[in-house]
Amino acid sequence: MRRRASLVLLAFAVFFAALAPLLRWYAYPRLAKIPPSEYQTAVLEAGPATLLDYGTMRPRKVSKVTIVQTLRGNVPAAEKAGKATGRDVVVWDALSYMAGPDGKMVSKIPERYVFDAHSQDPVHAGGEHVDGDAVRRDGIEFKWPFLTEKRDYRYFDAQTRTSAPIHYKGTQTFRGLKVYYFEQTIPWTKVPLPKTMPVKGVTPETVRKAGTSRWYSTKRMFWVEPTTGAPVNGQEIHREELRGGTLLGDRDRVTVFSGHVKMREDFIRHTVDMVKSQRQLVLLLTAYLPWGFLILGMALLALALLLEARGRAARPPSAPAEPTPLSVAGRSV
């Protein structure tokens, strides 16, 4: 009986001991991924801010500018890109919509981001764009990879359509979460005019024909929860100018927008709550279950060995074998 019990315990010990590394290094990289049907919104505000009045072509102080950012996973496009590349792909259609204090549109920039669901590396399967301009990302955007490392990453800047390093600047505590703080500074760079301008009759073409160009600079800050790679807070010190040309009269530059953009408090709370629960799922696969199963496996192995040892000790020593009488045709000889 003891022998059978120790064999069953041994089978369970091997089961749990094997499950621990399999979960961590085989299942986790395959199971932890961004779902292709994700839908997320974030609201950021800058108040006060400076905004260009296109009527007078003069910048004015406004109480608040709001940026609404929506990300929507496009499942059919993700499946198509997945088949073309043989990878697990996510396609996000995003819109960054900026509204003035009166709620009227200031700018509207759509984009498409195609990336690997597991690593968050950009995938070049066609369709990537910013405001209709085809782009080729070589950096992350919106989200860091699961198990974010304390190092610099390349981050895609939608205004310049290029990727540049975003620097790890240290570990902080934010609303009870350990977060990595990242910072990227984009120096003054000439950038394309938005396809949709805030004033009727003014198009990128008319601005260009007047010899005026758009310039932009930003300092981008992210607080990233490292287990999920999700930013729980984001800020930008964002400046845009129009430079040169006949539109500006005797001035060589005017401010289009200038402000310190911060996530709205209710969206920070919502994001922190969501990340805290998602974090537990990732930790379940990377830490809780592997370590729990390994310890359980070792304990069961010890128990199996103990039972086997006791079983052997309790067994009576075997008596010397007596000579067996030879039997021939049913008769003893």
């Binding site: 499950l19 399999l22 979960l23 085989y26 299942a27 395959r30 199971l31 991924k33 779902p35 292709p36 049907s37 839908y39 919104t41 609201v43 709001t66 609404v68 929506t70 929507r72 996973g73 496009n74 499942v75 059919p76 993700a78 499946e79 259609d93 995003a94 819109l95 919509y97 509204a99 709620g103 549109m105 509207k108 759509p110 209710d266 969206f267 709370r269 919502h270 994001t271």
Partner: peptide, 27 residues
């Protein structure tokens, strides 16, 4: 482990919600 990873998670469907052009009151 092989069964778990082979089944994976369902893809789901594209959300019918729009890309927002108004400021939402709450998340």
């Amino acid at each position: 482990v092989l069964t778990m990873t082979a089944i994976g998670a369902p893809s789901g469907e594209t959300s019918p919600k729009p890309l927002l052009t108004t400021v939402p009151k709450h998340p």
